[in-house]
Write a protein that binds this DNA or RNA. Structure first.
Lengths: 170, 170
DNA sequence: CTCGAAAATGAACATTGTTCAAGAAGAATC
DNA sequence: GATTCTTCTTGAACAATGTTCATTTTCGAG
C-alpha cells in the first residue's frame, strides 16, 4: 500500500490523506481496525450451540478469512509501529472481543479446570491455530499444505482436546 | 537493515555491497541463510536419546533462539521476495534439514502410524509451536505471555502427544 | 612499464513517506 | 454582498533508501 495510490484511489491529494490518517501508521491501523471487525463478524456467525462444533467452526472460519484476506491478516499481525510507539489500545480491545468467542467454548468443555489455566490454554490454542494457518498459507518453509489445512485443523483441535481429557461427543 | 549502513559497517562503498549481494533481497537472504544454519546448529545440540525429552528440548531450543534473535527469525519467516520471485531452493533445503530433527522423534513415538500421516503431524506441530512462540514474543494480540512460554510449551507438547495416544514415560 | 581485465566507487536517479507554505473554500460578521 | 477569519486542500519540495552505471582504481600478465 502506498500513500500516493490511496490518494489517487480516493480522488484527493496526498496532503489530504495525511490530514485524514496522520501518517502511514495511521493508514495501516485504519485498515487493521476494519480487518478485526470483519473477522469478528465472521466468527460471530459461527453457531454456539455445541462447544466442540463451535471450536471447529471457529477454526474453519478463521481459515476461511485468512485464505480470502491473507494480506489483511498479515498486516494485522506483522505490522510494526514506527519509532516503537505502543500498539493502539482500541485494536487490542477489539481483538480481545473476537478472542472471547474462542475462549467461551473451551470454558464450557473444561468446566472443572482453573479459569486462569483455561485462559492460557485458549490463548495457546489460538496461537497454535494461527501458526498452522499462517505458515500453511505461506506455502513455504515447513508448513501444512493449504489444500489439507481444513481437515488437519479439525484433527488438531480434536487431538488437543483429547489430550486435555475431553472425550468426543461428551 | 539499510544498504548504506551495511556499506559503512563493512568499510566499503554502496556499489560494492551490490557487487557482493546483487540486490536487497540478496542481502536479506544471505542473513537468512546464516540464521537457518545457526538455528540448525542449536537444534542439533539437543540430545536425541529419549524422543519425548528430545521434543521438549527442541521446543525449548527453538524458544531460546527465537528469544535471542527475534528479528532474525522474523526476517526468515516474514520476508517476501521482490517481484514475486520464488523463494530460494537452498534455503528451503536447509530448513528441511533442520525440520528433520523435529520429525525424527515423532516417528519414534508413533511407530504404528502411516508415515505420511506422521509427516503431516510433525509439520503441524512445528507450525503450532512456531505460532505460539512468535505470537508470544510479540507480546501483543492474543498471545501466551513470554515469561510463561517455556512451561506452557512443555504442556502443549505433552497434551498434544497425549491426544495422539502417547503415554508419558512409555 | 604498458595494457587490459576486474573490481571498487559514489554521484545521480527512482520510489515513497513526510512536511508545509500557499491557495481555495467556507463560515461569520457587518 | 463585501470583508474577514477560520478551516481545509493542495502539490511542490524534502528526506530516506534501494538501485544503476560511467568513471576510477587496482592489479596481474606480458
Amino acid at each position: 500500500m502506498k500513500v500516493r495510490d490511496v490518494a489517487e484511489a480516493a480522488g484527493c491529494s496526498i496532503g489530504s490523506v495525511y490530514n485524514e490518517f496522520g501518517d502511514f501508521d495511521g493508514l495501516i491501523l485504519t485498515v487493521n481496525r476494519e480487518t478485526v471487525q470483519a473477522l469478528t463478524a465472521r466468527l460471530k456467525a459461527v453457531p454456539a450451540d455445541d462447544p466442540l462444533r463451535q471450536l471447529h467452526g471457529l477454526a474453519d472460519a478463521y481459515l476461511g478469512f485468512a485464505t480470502e484476506h491473507a494480506n489483511l491478516l498479515r498486516s494485522l499481525f506483522e505490522h510494526r509501529m514506527e519509532d516503537d510507539r505502543p500498539f493502539p489500545e482500541d485494536i487490542l480491545a477489539m481483538v480481545m472481543d473476537a478472542f472471547a468467542l474462542m475462549h467461551a467454548p473451551l470454558v464450557r468443555l473444561l468446566p472443572g479446570r482453573d479459569p486462569d489455566d483455561v485462559a492460557l490454554l485458549s490463548r495457546m490454542m489460538f496461537s497454535a491455530v494461527h501458526g498452522i494457518i499462517s505458515l500453511g498459507l505461506e506455502e513455504r518453509m515447513v508448513a501444512v499444505p493449504p489444500e489439507m489445512l481444513r481437515e488437519r485443523l479439525v484433527q488438531f483441535v480434536d487431538t488437543h482436546l483429547a489430550g486435555l481429557g475431553v472425550t468426543r461427543g461428551a
